[in-house]
Design a protein around this nucleic acid. Structure first.
Lengths: 221, 221, 221, 221
DNA sequence: GATGAATGAGTGTTCATTCAT
DNA sequence: AATGAATGAACACTCATTCAT
């Protein structure tokens, strides 16, 4: 259900079916990969183009040749992040799956991505989400589009009666996304790897459980 | 229950009972206030010492006279944030109040602070929480101390049987803090003021409701 | 006998046999030359990188491109000084020339250099020799290596019986180098040019004469 | 024969005969002492007024109250150095002592001073002698006056026939002072203390011996 | 006299960006 | 396409000096 196309690494997959992946694309991908690694390590502002180029095995002139500016380079990363995310959510939204499955898919998407492309998730949590530097209206919009999509799912749940309507869908959206990001942030900032699929499942279940059924001890109800 | 001492503004309270608030403290406070405003507006990295000084109505030399370096200045802000937070939580923790009240107090603390000192909350959401620049072990520790306190409250709830024990207290902590931060982030980044005490109450209730009882529509159960 | 390779100017020799002296080396040399001039004029500390760049006809950014820092730039000058000096002494030391000729060669080296590259000699007398700023162990070592080489020559003289052994070779070294530096310092600080080869010869002879035979009037002995 | 007044410490001698040494003088002396210590340690340029004041146990405002500026403070040290030196030489010059005794007195003056006030000698060797920063005509004049006095002594020796006249008195002056400074520099820069009066005597003798009789092995003559 | 708050000129250094080769 | 030499705006920070108290 989940589009995992984002999981593909930027750099040349060894067993690529296309025999000729032209050098241009290859370099571009190497630069993007390197950019993710360096930005993750140092943060967007401290990430120097020279470092990125060096890590990508090219000259820094080439970075400008391909991307024009540091801002553009970051935008390329950002856009890829958001587009993958939107695509994934939209693909799920079309299905007739119940709300909890749709939300589960989103949670899994993030955790899967954290395993395959931790740098990107790190950048999302830090420089994409919160940097005041980057707080252009355009960038805020990316977030709104994300929230809107989640909200639509939740509204869907409210319409079909599976989600309570006495709390605004927008608020529920913030709570859902906030919880998810809370987990990701901690893992990312403390550099914790996910220890096996069971832990991933446990966390995902915990998130969904609390979101749907709350933290209250049922025995006492 | 909640220690609101942090709410006092750094700058000279107009109706100060102490007639003499020595000039030194006054300047220091003015600089801290200005720093919060500028850092909030531009982000830590883009905040120039000259701007802060100008906004504080002093020369930039004085900023160094008092704080020694930009990093120290930011640390002063950070420390004040964390210490106020710890103090508030600890004060609440001592009481015999039920878990939900303790958590409500924490939620209220954040939302009240957002009204009285929005700059500080903004900085928390952006530069204190997420900046990779600042990811020193010491700064991670501040976060851990915060989480540990929340976790202790939740463990308390698990012991007394009001909070379910089938989900790790640490996970519940991430969910609780994440939800709360989710709201704050949105308000902060979209520059939304809280429209009156009713809205604040509605949000706070929403957060607690979902955390304790979940988003599921009870009718359908 | 004396290796005069150091006498070559950093900047492009007008009658260079190599048609292509790549621009990179040329700029680097121009910067070093300019650095010598500015440091000589203002002293290491007062020498501003901007001045050096301007005198070299480049931007100050390029100075950093090539040398990384002011300290590195100064080290480059220093190292060149010391290496040339060591090379010269070592070349002379290998020969079977008598001690007085070896010492004469060293004296001549300094005075020749003072004519061809007065800036460098000036810097040696002031910033290389005496600056407390620069008194790192590494820099002291450079001096020690210089003294060790002179001492070895003098010990050679003591062994072969031409130099008295009742005074420690180390002391004689200090006296020899001190006398030589005494002359250089005066010329350098008073900005005196050497007036023709006869004066140079007279000074060199005076130095050697007194070092070997003393200042006492022989008639009276 | 040698005026050792310079040896007195700036700060209050415990057994002062004047019972009341007014606080003003005391502070001034403390500042001068501290200045010597700090300048010796860091070099003139790196010596901060704050450091000097702190070491002197006063506020930096007071340094300005007494000395007006950093340059003045350094001049006070410089002047004291030169005046003591001139006084000492002039006192010796008036006597009918033979040249070698006069020069011996000068050598002893320096080495004695190195024991009692090493900081001052250090500053002489580094910042007074060689700093290009300080190369004002006035400061060069101080040196000239020193050299002139030595030259006069040597000319005296040439007149009375004890010193050879085939080498210019000025050159002999450079050689004498250079040798002496060569020793001092080494001791100062390597932070070597003089190990007892015998070593001091040995060095002084060596200097005079070589200056008068040369380094040549007499057996071979 | 004594203090230290306040000032701001001055400078080393970084780094995105341009462009000739 | 690819390189890296060259540029200069921008900024943190130092520290001598002034001056109100």
């Amino acid at each position: 259900m989940i589009d995992k196309s984002i999981n593909k690494c930027y750099c040349i997959p060894m067993q690529s079916t296309e025999l000729v992946l032209d050098s241009k694309k290859r370099k571009e991908a190497a630069i993007l990969d390197a950019a993710c690694a360096v930005i993750r390590e140092k943060g967007l502002h401290q990430a120097r183009i020279v470092d990125i180029a060096r890590k990508a095995g090219t000259s820094y002139g080439l970075v400008y040749h391909y991307f024009g500016s540091k801002a553009n380079l970051f935008d390329a990363i950002s856009n890829e992040w958001w587009n993958s995310l939107y695509t994934m959510i939209d693909a799920g939204a079309k299905t007739a799956a119940p709300v909890n499955e749709k939300l589960a898919a989103i949670i899994n998407y993030f955790f899967d991505l954290y395993e395959t492309r931790p740098n990107l998730v790190h950048i999302f949590v830090t420089d994409i989400s919160r940097s005041t530097n980057n707080l252009t209206p355009e960038r805020l919009n990316c977030f709104k589009r994300f929230f809107d999509r989640i909200e639509r799912i939740i509204v869907g749940g409210q319409s079909e009666g599976t989600i309570r309507s006495d709390i605004r869908a927008r608020y529920l959206t913030y709570i859902f996304v906030g919880s998810l990001e809370g987990f990701l942030s901690t893992m990312v900032l403390e550099n914790q790897p996910i220890k096996g699929p069971e832990q991933k499942q446990r966390i995902a279940n915990g998130l969904l459980e609390v979101f749907f059924n709350g933290a209250r001890n049922v025995d006492r109800r």
